[in-house]
Design a protein around this nucleic acid. Structure first.
Length: 804
RNA sequence: GGGCCUGUAGUCCAACGGUUAAGACGCUACCUUGACAUGGUAGAGAUCGGAGUUCGACUCUCCGCAGGCCCACCA
């Protein structure tokens, strides 16, 4: 009985099995798989299960097909999850070195946990090609890639408004943001005009009033037409600002007059730039008020409370309205994002958008339509890629800055990996201005800088001789959620550096949703975890569930019902193979010696199987394990088990004249079905295969199908079985035979008797075309239906009745 | 507001423009037949609506309706 020991047994053996390793010496065609390096959180989630199943199944299939498969696995050990874990455990007061060490510790522990879970899923990645974004070698390559881009003029440092996370005290990229709907107060505040009139302004951010540099109204707004160009006085601060006109202002919102601060939001930014207004730095890096003179050092939250109290006391708060709006939050720590004007490192990406789209178009997207998401995202970018992060546990940007002329000085290649904070610059004086005031660039790189070169890394860039053979990767597998990040940045960086697309195909899977149809979320309690599933289900049930979970690219609601179905199929497979093995043990006749014994039942099922082999292999070849498994499972369960096996039982139990042909057919279909099942459900298949055939299924080659259907023939491994008497397609004969048997079963069911119950007679009326074939298997029909009396006569179409 | 995707039985999920629209879960009835009751047999049950292209539309086009995702906006 298939159980967890069997899973473990094979998983153990496979870890060191040479067959599953990439062979750099081999001249077989190569197949390279670029899988996501997961953040080292320590636990797999369902998304990992999804792509691990795809990656491993395709790796196993391509090996069976004769490819030399490179299936590495990487780990994104850096990045926020690790830092947050360390912060949680040790607080925020560790020294830089200490902090880095703790991060390393946690991530390496977590890698082990995750790797074990992946191995439990049967993943046959090759550990000698493992990579880790934390390793010296990886950092060296990332830094090399940055220096390459710098030398090509893509990297610059500039003062620029950047999205900023006050919790992480770091700038972040637009791609790291999420929306959050929240309720907030819209405060109506009285500003005074020169002639003692008042102007009411609605704002959700009163704490930024000190950074107010103008009041904007819509030029079409009749209420304020006369005010444009006039001064208005900011309450509490008693500072004058101008009223300006801009069509970006929505007349309907609040009072139609908008306070322009530097920078409360992007509208402010646009207006400030357009109208060339002053800049007032309103917030510190950790989100506290600065330059206000009244509320400095308070958090924005506290300052807001105080300022509202103050305004209320002075009677300047006219109204408070609850509104719902959405704010941008940092996807990792969920902190609200501020817009700050800071000096940051950037990579030029805007000007490469057309090129990125061109490279993307040269890649085969599966499913195709998801390329729109990338294009859509690319078109929406407003700024270059801000790559600096003020974090510790990241790849150091390999640059120094001349404090005199602001020239960027890259590290020398020999000194990589480098940390400018502790290492010396490659030159003592600035090559431009000759100053010796050279300071390190202290920020680290955005994590997507690390992971956007994985296709280069796995193919051995820049040192390996194999690079040209291994790059581009054959396939990249990833989820829809990281199209705008991983896919986008990889296409940009890897193609810029290599001059070629990073991968031939890009396979994108959807998200696995909770049983309630919503995204799985810890706080919603609708999460399903692989560790739980692995206790309840055989690994292969989980893998088969993934394969049967609909076409790639669309989201899938997790369902225990579907999981149960997958599990039951494994049971069916095991039982049927056990049954078959009773007859094929020791059976060694080849197709030649029995070719005249095949009857219509055999030829019909072999013909159908030929179709299935073709469908399944074509599906696998286009990386569609969903179609492959859907077709194969249905064929195996219903056509093969429910009909064929039942139909030939009488032949194999009794030593009939044509028993050998039936046994041969059982063996042929069982053997080749197992081979086709092996990539997706390897554990149970290998267990059954080694038991029955006494060799590994992974040493077999794929079954071949007959492509030429012009003649009415059936062929097995090149030997043609020709039945001169068959003049209509064998499929329609097979269907007719099954209809007869189905009709008899139906009649027995209606009469509430067992299918095993003998009956007096079966009466078949069939048209001329069919009747001669039915005659050929009259004895079979009699035995299958348990009747000594099968009467066949001419009639219209096909009509079956029985007598009890 | 822009873009993309999806609408098939109570539910999930298939179907090169061409038989009687496949399979699963659930439901009903029957069958403890010498692989399997985690099984078998049978039954009821579906193409979102409207136009159009076509000899023929689940499939292609347009419109509408309903969901989902991405993006923009949100003072």
């Amino acid at each position: 009985m298939y159980n967890i020991e069997i899973d473990n047994k094979w998983n153990q053996r496979w870890i060191n099995d040479k067959r599953f390793k990439f062979d750099p010496e081999s001249d077989k065609p190569v197949f390279v798989i670029d899988t996501p390096p997961p953040f080292t959180t320590g636990e797999l989630h369902m998304g990992h299960v999804y792509w691990v199943t795809y990656a491993d199944s395709l790796a196993r299939y391509m090996r069976l097909k004769g490819y030399n498969v490179l299936y590495p696995q990487g780990w994104d050990a850096k990045g926020f999850p690790t830092e947050i874990a360390v912060e949680k455990k040790y607080g925020r007061s560790l020294s830089r070195d200490e902090f880095y060490k703790r991060c390393e510790e946690i991530s390496s522990q977590n890698i082990k946990l995750m790797k074990d879970q992946m191995r439990q899923l049967g993943a046959t990645f090759d550990e000698s090609y493992e990579y880790n974004t934390l390793s010296k070698d990886y950092i060296r390559k990332v830094q090399l890639s940055l220096i390459y881009m710098f030398n090509k003029g893509l990297i610059y440092k500039a003062m620029h408004p950047v999205d900023w996370c006050p919790h992480c005290v770091s700038s972040i990229a637009k791609a790291e943001e999420e929306d959050l709907e929240e309720e907030t107060d819209l405060n109506y505040i009285s500003f005074s005009l020169e002639d003692n009139k008042e102007l009411i302004i609605a704002t959700t951010r009163p704490e930024l009033m000190h950074a107010c540099v103008a009041i904007a109204v819509n030029p079409e707004d009749s209420r304020y037409k006369d005010y444009i160009g006039k001064d208005v006085i900011i309450p509490l601060y008693n500072r004058k600002v101008k009223i300006i006109a801009d069509e970006i202002v929505d007349k309907e919102f609040g009072t139609g007059a908008e306070m322009i601060c530097t920078y409360g939001d992007k509208n402010d930014l646009i207006i400030v730039k357009k109208h060339n207004l002053n800049f007032i730095d309103a917030l510190t890096e950790d989100g506290r008020i600065k330059n206000s003179g009244l509320y400095d050092n308070l958090t924005a939250q506290d300052a807001r409370k105080k300022i509202i109290e103050e305004l209320k006391a002075k009677g300047l708060l006219k109204k408070v309205e609850k509104i719902k709006h959405s704010v941008r939050i940092h996807d990792r720590c969920k902190t609200k994002i501020e817009l700050l004007n800071r000096e940051q490192m950037f990579i030029k990406i805007k000007e490469f958008i057309p090129k990125i789209k061109e490279v993307a178009a040269s890649i085969r997207w599966i499913p195709e339509h998801l390329i729109h998401r990338l294009n859509n995202w690319a078109d929406s970018l407003e700024w270059d890629w801000n790559i600096s992060r003020n974090r510790i546990f990241g790849t150091p940007l390999p640059f120094w800055i001349c404090n005199n002329c602001k020239n960027i000085i890259p590290a020398a290649e020999e000194q990589l990996p480098v940390n400018p904070i502790v290492d010396k610059p490659p030159v003592e004086r600035c090559p431009i201005c000759n100053s010796n005031d050279i300071i390190p660039e202290t920020s680290t790189a955005d994590v997507w800088i690390d992971s956007s070169i994985t296709p280069l890394i796995i193919s051995g860039w820049p040192d390996s001789k194999l690079f040209d053979r291994l790059y581009p990767a054959s396939i990249r597998i990833q989820g829809t959620d990281i199209i705008r990040t991983w896919a986008f940045y990889t296409i940009f960086r890897s193609s810029f550096i290599s001059g070629d697309k990073p991968f031939e195909s890009l396979l994108i899977h959807g998200m696995i949703l909770g049983p309630d149809g919503r995204q799985m979320h810890k706080s919603w309690g609708n999460g399903v975890y692989p560790s739980e599933l692995l206790q309840k289900y055989p690994v292969d049930a989980i893998r088969l569930w993934v394969a049967l979970s609909g076409s790639i690219g669309s989201d899938k609601i997790f369902s225990y019902k579907d999981m149960e179905y997958a599990k039951r199929f494994l049971n069916k497979l095991e039982n049927s193979i056990n049954f078959i093995s009773r007859f094929i043990k020791g059976f060694d006749k080849d197709e030649n010696s029995i070719k005249d014994e095949f009857n219509l039942f055999d030829i019909a099922i072999l013909s159908k199987f030929n179709d299935i082999v073709e469908i399944v292999e074509r599906a696998y070849d286009s990386y569609d394990i969903n179609t492959a498994m859907t077709q194969l499972v249905n064929f195996y369960w219903h056509d093969f088990c429910d009909y064929y096996i039942e139909n030939i039982k009488h032949r194999v139990y009794n030593d009939s004249r044509d028993k050998d042909a039936a046994v041969f057919t059982l063996r042929y279909i069982a053997n080749n079905s197992l081979i086709l099942f092996a990539p997706v459900i390897p554990h149970i298949v290998e267990e059954l295969y080694t038991t029955v055939f006494e060799r590994s299924v992974f040493d077999q080659s794929l079954p071949k199908f007959v492509e030429n259907r012009e003649e009415l023939t059936y062929a097995i491994n090149g030997i043609v079985f020709r039945s001169a008497e068959i003049e209509v397609p064998i499929e329609s004969i097979g269907d007719a035979l099954n209809s007869i048997i189905s009709a008899v079963r139906q009649a027995k069911t209606k009469n509430k008797i067992s299918l095993n119950e003998p009956i007096k007679s079966v009466n078949i009326k069939a048209n001329e075309e069919l009747i001669r074939y039915i005659e050929l298997v009259k004895d079979d029909i009699a035995k299958i239906c348990k009747s000594n009396n099968v009467n066949i006569e001419k009639g219209e179409g096909l009509n079956v009745s029985i007598e009890l």
